[in-house]
Amino acid sequence: MVKASVSVSSLFQDFLSLLFPEECRACGGELAIGEDVICSHCRIKLPYTNFHLMPKDNVLHKVFWGRVPVQLAVSYLMFQEKSRVQRLLHQLKYRGREEVGEVLGRWYGAQLQQQEAFTDVDVVIPVPLYKAKRQQRGYNQVSAFGQEIASALQVSFEEYVLKKSRSSKTQTKKNRQQRWEAMRQLYSVAQKERIVGKHVLLIDDVVTTGATLEACSSALLAAGAKAVSIATIAYTL
C-alpha cells in the first residue's frame, strides 16, 4: 500500500511538471523531468574554472599574495556579464532562489571532497551580511552553497561566527590603504572558540578585488584560526 501511494504521488508530480514546467535558472528554458534547477545543457556549458585541481597555484590564489596568507583559493565558475553565471547569481541574490546556491554547492562539494588538499578543513564559514541587509533579503545568499560544501566535506557549517558591523559605503575617494582600513573594521569574529586552531574554509559568492575576503580572512586569523582557505561560486577576471 505504501509503495502504491509513493507511485501515485510520483506520477502526480510528473503530471504537474508537464502542466507547469519549472524553468532553468541559468537560461530560462523549461526543465525536463529529472532535471533540477539547472538544465543539462546549461550544466555542460557553464564556464568551470577547475581551480580545485590546483588550489595553491591559480590566478585566484595569486590575488591574495602579499595581502593575507590564504592556504587554498578556489572558485567554481568564471563570471562574465550577460552570461549564464550572471543570471544564476542574480536569481540567487535578488530573486530568493536559494536552491541555486544549494545545487551549485552540492556539485562543487562533490569535487572538493575528492581533493586531498581539502581533507584537513575543519569548518565552513560564510562571508556575513550586515544584519539589516540580511533582514531585508531574508537570507545570506552564500549560506546554502556553504552548507552543501560543509556536508560534502563532513565538517560543521558556522553561519554566525563572522559578523559585519555595518553596511559598506563607497570607497572610491579613498586610497588603497584607507580602503583596507575601512574594510578591515567592518568584520569581526563573534565566537572565537569555534575557530581557534582550526582550518577555516571561507565562502562567498563572487570575487572581484578580493578586499572583502582579505578582511574576513585577516579577522579569522587574528582571532586564532590555524589557517584560512577560500571557496566562492564565481571569480571575475
Rank of each mutant, 00 (worst) to 15 (best):
V121C: 13
L31S: 11
R67T: 02
R43H: 07
L19F: 11
A150Y: 01
T212E: 10
G146T: 10
Y94W: 08
L221I: 14
L88W: 10
R67L: 11
Q177Y: 09
L92I: 10
V207L: 10
V37F: 05
D122K: 00
R43W: 11
K192F: 06
S217N: 03
T49Q: 11
D205A: 05
S83R: 10
S217P: 00
A219I: 03
S165G: 13
A231L: 08
G210R: 06
R87N: 15
H90T: 09
Q114M: 15
E214M: 03
M1A: 09
A211T: 08
P69K: 13
K173P: 00
K133F: 05
K56Q: 14
I230C: 01
C42D: 05
M78Y: 00
F79H: 03
L112Q: 13
L153F: 02
F79I: 04
L202W: 13
K163I: 00
Y76V: 01
W65G: 04
L53T: 12
T49L: 11
F20K: 03
E81Y: 03
V85M: 07
S7T: 09
P69D: 12
L220K: 04
D205N: 07
V8E: 12
V121N: 05
Q185E: 14
Q71I: 07
A223F: 08
S167E: 15
E159M: 04
D57R: 10
L112N: 12
S229G: 05
S168H: 11
S151P: 00
K45I: 00
K45C: 06
L237I: 04
Q86F: 03
Q86M: 08
G96W: 14
C39H: 05
G138R: 06
A4R: 07
R84A: 02
G224C: 03
R179V: 05
R137S: 14
D14F: 04
D36G: 02
V206N: 07
V2N: 14
I203P: 02
A219P: 01
V228K: 02
I44C: 06
K131Y: 15
V189G: 01
Q141P: 08
G96R: 09
Q111T: 13
A132D: 15
R134Q: 15
A32S: 15
R97K: 13
A152T: 04
E22C: 01
R194K: 15
R176Y: 01
K164S: 07
Q185G: 14
F64L: 11
C42I: 02
Q177V: 09
A110W: 06
G146C: 12
Q86N: 05
V63H: 11
Q113A: 15
A117F: 11
E193H: 15
R95K: 03
C216E: 01
T172Y: 09
C24Q: 00
D205C: 05
G146H: 08
M183K: 14
V142L: 08
D122I: 00
R179L: 03
R137K: 12
A227V: 01
L77S: 02
N58L: 09
A110V: 13
N58E: 12
V189C: 07
D57S: 13
M54R: 13
Q141G: 03
T119F: 08
L53R: 13
N50K: 12
G210V: 05
P128T: 10
A182R: 11
D204W: 04
K173N: 14
E181M: 12
R166L: 01
E214S: 04
A234D: 00
D14V: 13
G34P: 13
L92H: 07
